[in-house]
């Protein structure tokens, strides 16, 4: 366990090297919120409520979405694992007594922490500017949903990346597709309950809404019950099992071909 704390600490230091990069990445996040904000403002200029959301609720939703996506989707492992497998850096880890995926999960956590700190600052700033009426009522379910979301996101990303073991050249496009799908269906851009009922209930059978929408809905006091939490855990379990199987198979292929 201690080794992973050290990984966390060293990654934390490493992040400060890329200050400019980081600031630009945060800037992109704020920009995205502003864009969606003005989009919704213009929608609300002709009506006072859209699918049951008032203007204030919508703004509150988007601000929180920014915060939660900082927590859930900041995941440098998604950008690095594929490359490390295809160029053989993975070898450095396979000869050492350390778990490669755990190592990257730890680095992701380190990145999440720094992102949350910044997100709190940004949200405070946006809050001061727009003064939305934020109503939040987080409970234990929200917290567990968040933890589950972080883990599901990690597992999903690594599962997509695993294709690198069989097609070292093709990961990027695959990863990109998955990420775009995620953005659409996680609830980052709009609250998913705006969708027609059939679409919304279909989405529940995918892992995506458990990443942002459900934790967020639970925080802003929408009725999110234990059934949703259970489904989130089920997804976590399924993905964990799948990743374990696929990764072991991938490593076997990797070790057979040797990079």
């Amino acid at each position: 366990m201690r080794k992973y704390f050290t990984v966390f600490a060293i990654d934390w230091q490493n992040q400060f090297i890329y200050r400019l990069n980081f600031i630009l990445w945060r800037f992109r996040n704020v920009l995205r919120v502003l864009m969606t904000y003005y989009l919704w403002i213009s929608i609300f200029s002709s009506q006072t409520s859209v699918f049951g959301y008032t203007k204030e609720q919508m703004i509150a939703y988007l601000l929180l979405a920014l915060f939660i996506s900082s927590l859930v989707t900041s995941s440098p492992s998604n950008d690095n694992v594929g490359g490390e497998v295809s160029n053989g850096t993975l070898n450095n880890f396979l000869v050492k007594p350390i778990g490669y995926l755990r190592y990257w999960f730890t680095r992701d956590l380190s990145s999440k922490l720094i992102n949350i700190i910044f997100a709190v600052g940004e949200i405070s700033l946006l809050y001061i500017i727009f003064r939305p009426s934020l109503y939040v009522s987080p409970n234990l379910i929200s917290l567990l949903l968040l933890v589950s979301a972080v883990i599901i996101y990690f597992l999903l990303g690594k599962l997509a990346i695993s294709i690198v073991f069989w097609a070292p050249e093709n990961t990027w496009g695959f990863m990109f597709t998955i990420l775009v799908l995620m953005e659409m269906f996680t609830g980052l851009i709009f609250p998913l309950d705006l969708l027609p009922h059939w679409a919304f209930s279909t989405l529940q059978f995918t892992p995506f809404p458990y990443l942002i929408y459900f934790p967020l809905a639970s925080i802003i006091g929408k009725p999110v019950d234990l059934r949703i939490l259970l489904q989130s855990f089920v997804w976590m379990g399924i993905l964990y099992y799948l990743l374990k199987k696929v990764w072991a198979k991938g490593l076997k292929t990797y070790s057979a071909s040797g990079i």
């Binding site: 201690r2 080794k3 050290t6 060293i10 230091q13 490493n14 090297i17 050492k96 350390i98």
Partner: peptide
């Protein structure tokens, strides 16, 4: 670790190998 002094990598290895 490319961006850090080598001593940091030594510390990490120390922990990895306990």
């Amino acid at each position: 670790w490319w961006d850090l002094p080598a001593i940091e990598s030594f510390i990490l290895n120390k922990e990895i190998y306990e």
